[in-house]
Structure formats: C-alpha cells, structure tokens
C-alpha cells in the first residue's frame, strides 16, 4: 500500500509518550491555575460592583440553571452536533469533489473558481433568508447554511494541494508510464493530504458557527427538537441569562470536539512522514 496510515507504535514509543505527558503536567497546571484566578475575579466583580444576575450570573448559578434546563440543553446539543456533522460532511464531500474538478481541468478552474469566490464573498447572513424560502425551516436549510460557511477553506486548500504536486515526482510517474488514474491516487491525493487536512481544521472550527447560526434563523421547524442556536434565542427572549451562559459553554464544547477530532485525524495520517510533526510523533 503506497498510502498508509501510520499504525500503532512500539513499546519504546509508548514509554517515551508517557514520559512526555509527565513533562507536560506543568503546562497543564498553569492554565488551570489561571482559570481558577479568573473565576475568583468573576465572583469578586459581582460582589464589588453589585452586578445583577441578568447581567453577569455567578458560575455556580450557571451550573444550577444549566441543570434545571438540562433536558432542553442536552436535546439542543444533540441536535446541533447532528447538524454540525451533516454540514461538515456536506462540506467535505462537496469541497473535495469541487477541488478535484478545479485541479484537473483548467477550464473548470477558470470558469468555476470566480463563482466559488462569489459564493464565498456573499455574506451568508444575506443568503440565509433565500435558502429558508427555498428549503423551509429545519435541518435542510441549517445544513446548507453550515455548508456555505465551511466549504471554502476545504476547496481552497485542497485545490492548492492538488495543483502543487512536486514537479520531479510528476516526472517520476511519467518515466514509469503511470496512467492519469494512478497519478491521481498514488501521487496527487496523498501529496494534497496536508493541505486538505489544514482546510479541514479551519472548516472544523467554522462548523459549529454554521450550525448555530443556521439554527437561530431556521431552527423553528426542527421537528419539536430545537438545536442549541434556537435554544439560545428562546433563553434570551425569556431573559434566562444563567442558562444562556450554560448554552454558550456547551456550544464551545462542540467546537472543541470537532477541532479535536480533526487534529487527531491529521496526526494519525501525517505523523510518520510530514515535517509538521517532526520526529515527536
């Protein structure tokens, strides 16, 4: 297999890894300490300036109200994660297909790329109402809005990666009589992998934004279960500020989940051969 995901390490690597995670402990301790300080300042500010709960709720109140609203919040989180997955999948599939077209035909590149840019440059906020008119309230519109926000970094990076293949390697394939198909699968796609994964990382960070924004404008008809974005709209209308903070915290968690997943995937694929993971894999 020419392109192979690096497989699990040997014992020596495991030991090294444990050693490293121990050495990492102080770098974990430091942000935790800073976090504690931040929370202390938070309480101090509330006490000092007599801030009411509808301006700045105390952390323990956020936790309490979050528990009270746990059913709504949990349902919202599941729904939003689902929307994220759909939007992300659509971006990856659509982005890769589009990239292959753009990379392989200079006609497609010249003809289509300006329109890809037009689509990217038109703010989604303006497009959203049109999308909702066409596809109605609900998950379809949310997925499309999420796609519009996420697909561009994937297309831009992957296209670049597919077009920037090392000239000498292309010559090598030509000397040995490679077919176009072989060149694509054994050369261009693996060579574009680091670029694609960079696009994927940016898209992963944008995905929750797309899904949550989609939710706020098109979340009304999500079949009884509103996503986190719509939950936020309701909480803010009801002035349930502590629950609003809890929702923000959960949305942040979804973002970490996605970015973490993509970072892990990138590490798996690239650690053995790519310079961005120099010898510390």
């Amino acid at each position: 297999m020419i392109f192979r995901m690096a497989s699990g390490g040997c014992r020596v690597e495991e030991v090294m890894h444990k050693l490293k995670s121990w050495m990492l402990a102080p770098s974990l301790l430091w942000p935790l300490l800073l976090g504690a300080l931040f929370i202390a300042l938070w309480y101090a500010a509330i006490a000092l300036f007599h801030l009411p709960e509808y301006i700045l709720p105390a952390p323990h109140r956020i936790f309490e109200e979050g528990l009270v609203e746990r059913k709504t919040l949990w349902g919202g989180m599941v729904q939003t994660t689902y929307a994220c997955l759909l939007g992300f999948a659509a971006s990856v599939i659509g982005g890769v297909v589009l990239s292959l077209m753009l990379a392989y035909s200079s006609w497609a590149y010249k003809g289509l790329y300006p329109y890809v840019l037009v689509l990217k440059m038109t703010p989604v906020i303006v497009l959203a109402p049109i999308i909702i008119i066409w596809f109605g309230q609900g998950i379809n519109s949310i997925t499309i809005i999420s796609f519009l926000i996420c697909f561009f970094p994937i297309v831009a990076n992957t296209t670049m990666g597919l077009r920037a293949t090392d000239r000498n390697l292309v010559d090598l394939f030509q000397v040995y009589g490679a077919t176009k198909r072989q060149e694509l699968f054994y050369l261009r796609i693996p060579a574009a992998m680091p670029y694609f994964l960079t696009g994927l990382k940016i898209a992963a960070a944008l995905t929750p934004i797309g899904a949550l924004y989609g939710d706020t404008v098109a979340g009304m008809g999500s079949g009884g279960q509103a996503g986190l974005g719509f939950v936020v709209v309701i909480f803010s209308a009801q002035l349930k500020v502590p629950a609003l903070f809890a929702a923000a915290f959960l949305a942040c968690l979804i973002g970490f989940l996605f970015v973490g997943l993509v970072n892990w995937l990138s590490w798996r694929v690239l650690r053995r051969w790519h310079d961005s993971y120099l010898m510390d894999g």
Partner: peptide, 18 residues
C-alpha cells in the same frame, strides 16, 4: 525524489506497482 508518505519498501516497489 522519494514519496514522503510511503515506506522505503513501498517507494522501491512503486515502478512495479505502476
């Protein structure tokens, strides 16, 4: 001019694979 993502064995076998 080796493929950075392939092992040495896979690199050597590349022309035969093609």
């Amino acid at each position: 001019n080796l493929l950075p993502w392939a092992t040495i064995a896979d690199n050597v076998a590349l022309p035969l694979r093609l």
